[in-house]
Design a protein around this nucleic acid. Structure first.
Length: 120
DNA sequence: ATGTTGACTGCGT
DNA sequence: AACGCAGCCAACA
């Protein structure tokens, strides 16, 4: 049997891509942040950073907890804050980890930035 | 099957 | 220097 005669009739609800993005996001240490582009680069650099953002949107539906609040755009802005239950939920989550957020932007991004392809 | 959209990013004018 | 556009891949209608 080259391949199972009865393939899984029920494909995984989430593609491998989503799972990968979620997994990387989960590896972000508390108190640190990363960017969509960094995750995209770690996953192959060919994936549009948009796709990562899209996958993050599904983070809410992920089975495991995904610290999406630690994923920002390359400017350190909380671009996904509008996708949270409340507009301030993301900022509060970051501040809870000791991250300073001013005007929807992380303070000291250079210090807090966590690059998966560099530190992982 | 085709078209559109999307939590982005880099380059060009 | 600021603004705008095009590129990237995958899911949904």
């Amino acid at each position: 049997m080259k391949k199972p005669a009865s393939p899984p009739a029920a494909p995984p609800p989430q593609r491998n891509f989503f799972a990968d993005v979620h997994e990387v996001a989960r590896l972000i240490p508390p108190g640190r942040v990363t960017s969509y582009g960094a995750i995209a680069h770690y996953l192959g650099a060919r994936h549009g950073a948009r796709m990562v953002g899209w996958a993050m949107m599904a983070a809410h539906t992920a089975e495991q907890y995904v610290p999406a609040h630690r994923v920002l755009n390359r400017l350190g802005q909380l671009t996904g804050r509008l996708h949270y239950p409340t507009p301030t939920a993301m900022q509060e989550a970051l501040e809870r980890e000791g991250i300073q957020v001013v005007d929807d932007q992380v303070v000291g991004l250079d210090k807090l930035f966590w690059d998966p392809s560099r530190e992982l």
